[in-house]
Computed example of a mutant assay.
Amino acid sequence: MTVQVLLAAILFLLMVLIGGKKGARSFFTLFLNFGVLLITVIVMTVPSVNPIILTLIACAAISSINLFYINGVNSKTKTAFFSSMITIVILLFFIVIVTDKAMIQGFGEEEEEAISAFSLYIGVDFVKVGAAVIIMSAIGSITDIAISIASPMRELFHHHPSISRKELFTFGLSIGRDVLGTDTNTLFFAFFGSYLALLIWFKDLNYSIGEIVNSKVFSAEIINILCAGIGVALIIPITAWSTAYFLVKTGDRGI
């Protein structure tokens, strides 16, 4: 038994013991999401494919798996999915504009030696690919916050069906404020954790603070973090408003 299989078995056992059937479904979603990501990467290398459209389709598939497969099809998962897709569309077009204006596409001088043996004429728009990378990195946090807000809002409405839409919206915002800081920091450490070796490399190259800050690789990483953080902030009011609107309008009879 390899180390990977052993760790996977331990993770599966813990998720089943703690989460029961929902924990088991959550474990299998890891493989489903990996399959979606793998297919997305393979298809994205086809020159005729638009990475933006492909990313939207992939995000819709991942959101459906994370929300509907794990939690079932109900009012809270429907509003969470609806809110996630609106946020992704807004964030995606915003990122395309930012990455184009910041001119972070392509490779930095630190990467020249590693890619010198490869052809760069692969017919792929790296601006759109960069936008796709940011979105795919943030989709997990976006759907997580969406369901974290929609679920307690639905529970509150179930126990207090006479609550007003404004009060329900305010309640959702209050929940969002509690998770905003932790999720933003989670994204920050996730991004920088993966680039820790790069920071050590900068140190070994005796880069000054100014050279590091102005490096294309470092700038691209900062933009990734900030754009993902914007997505995390956007999902809170969007989910709170859409959930409050649909719950009050339908009386939670199914959306």
Rank of each mutant, 00 (worst) to 15 (best):
L38C: 11
S219D: 05
L173T: 11
T182M: 06
T184Y: 12
R154S: 03
G123C: 05
K22T: 04
I95T: 15
V73L: 14
S208K: 10
G172F: 07
V46L: 13
E167R: 04
V127N: 15
E111I: 12
L198I: 10
D100H: 14
C227M: 15
S63A: 14
A58T: 11
L56Y: 02
S63G: 05
A190K: 03
A228V: 05
F27L: 02
I145C: 03
G193T: 08
I163W: 07
L92Y: 00
T170D: 10
S119P: 01
G20M: 15
A228L: 05
A150Y: 00
T2G: 15
E112S: 06
G181Q: 10
K128R: 12
I238G: 01
K249L: 09
Y245C: 01
T45L: 14
T77C: 07
K22F: 03
S151D: 08
I225T: 11
P161M: 05
A197Q: 13
E113S: 07
S208G: 14
G35Y: 12
I42C: 02
I52K: 03
K203W: 13
I145V: 12
S137P: 04
L199W: 08
D144W: 03
I122H: 06
T2C: 11
S116P: 00
L205E: 09
M44G: 04
L13K: 06
L14C: 07
A131C: 09
G181W: 10
I86R: 09
I57P: 03
G176M: 01
T2D: 15
L196A: 13
I104V: 14
I86Q: 07
V129F: 06
M15K: 09
L198P: 03
G72K: 08
T29S: 13
M44F: 12
L173E: 08
P152C: 12
F94A: 12
L7T: 06
I90W: 09
L226F: 08
T182E: 06
L156F: 12
K101L: 11
F189T: 10
A8S: 13
A114P: 02
K216Q: 15
H158Q: 13
I225K: 00
S162W: 02
S116T: 04
S215A: 11
G23Y: 04
I212F: 13
F68A: 01
F93R: 11
V124H: 02
T243V: 08
L196N: 07
F81H: 03
M15I: 03
T77E: 02
A9C: 14
G140V: 04
N33H: 08
G19H: 04
A240C: 08
L205F: 07
I70P: 05
W241Q: 00
G130E: 02
A24V: 03
H160Q: 10
T77F: 04
S162C: 06
S64N: 14
I222Y: 09
M153N: 05
L56H: 03
R177S: 12
L67M: 09
L91M: 12
H159Q: 10
F192Q: 04
L226H: 02
L14S: 04
N71I: 01
F94Q: 10
R25C: 04
F191L: 10
I209E: 10
A220K: 06
V98T: 14
F68E: 01
Y121P: 00
I53C: 01
V36Y: 03
I115R: 05
